[in-house]
Design a protein around this nucleic acid. Structure first.
Ligand SMILES: [Zn+2]
Ligand SMILES: [Zn+2]
Ligand SMILES: [Zn+2]
Ligand SMILES: [Zn+2]
Lengths: 135, 135
DNA sequence: CTTGACCCTAAAGTATGCTCCAGGGTTTAT
DNA sequence: ATAAACCCTGGAGCATACTTTAGGGTCAAG
């Protein structure tokens, strides 16, 4: 399979595939005489794995590490894999907390604004942003 | 006030201040004979405003726009300001939803893994990532 | 045999928000 | 007068995940 076909089957672009190769996410495939990349069918599975991992928040570098584990799974443990998941879950949690705090603060400020089409000369939002104390 | 003093009072670095100037976040100040930036005291307030806006999720570019409004608030309306807040609140909401969905998916996958120190040859996490169908 | 579709590389560009560097003046205190 | 501390500029570097560009081979169909 050449890169265009792999792109079609994986839903990624050829540019992305070459980028993933450069970044070590997918292994460099064999080359034809003319220098074309020749992929094995299972590469599609690897890419699906990567896309799934990305979809739950893993960075490309983390996907690369996960895929490395996937490649020789018997040399790794469930504990190791689960630990990576739990770390990521914690990160997601933290990010949600941050967003929630931002949302709450902004909501409170926003609610204090009348929203009228009069001048913003004494707009509560602007006032709050000016006065807010950041620790 | 020179840039070092402004840095101290605002809690930002001189590099950041010069960067903000280049990006149009804060106006270019007057210069001394020797070319040093000479800031007015209210610049500290502007920077506090920017930091507050950043803290509730506004990007630097958005902070720049908000500060522009702040600078001649009487030429703008509460409706305009509140609209910007509400758009940002929506964005924060969307980001939280995305994170929540990622978290739920990963949590479910993670819970299916035994976490043992045995081989990951049949790890539920790896299996799920490989099989997961992404629409 | 030519045209279009496909493939190759290295390098630069995009967006965000800084941070650091080199090389060189200025101010301030001792 | 000299050294520390401060200021200046332009440009590069970092992290992330690609995308685009430029210039140039290869392959398959008609
Ligand atoms: Zn391994
Ligand atoms: Zn208002
Ligand atoms: Zn205006
Ligand atoms: Zn497992």
């Amino acid at each position: 399979m050449r890169i265009g076909e792999l792109a079609k089957q994986s839903g990624l672009t050829v540019d992305t595939l070459r980028y993933y190769e450069k970044e070590g996410v997918i292994p460099a495939p064999a080359r034809s005489e003319s220098g074309y990349r020749e992929y094995l069918p299972e590469t599609v599975d690897f890419l699906r794995f990567v896309q799934s991992a990305k979809a739950v928040g893993f960075s490309l570098k983390e996907c690369r590490n996960l895929l490395e584990i996937f490649h020789h799974r018997s040399a790794h443990t469930c504990a190791e894999v689960k630990s990576l998941s739990e770390i990521k879950l914690e990160e997601l949690d933290q990010q949600m907390k941050n967003l929630k705090a931002m949302h709450q603060t902004l909501k409170a400020i926003s609610d204090a604004c009348c929203g009228s089409t009069e001048s913003a000369a004494s707009c509560a939002i602007l006032n709050h942003l000016e006065e807010a104390s950041m620790p």
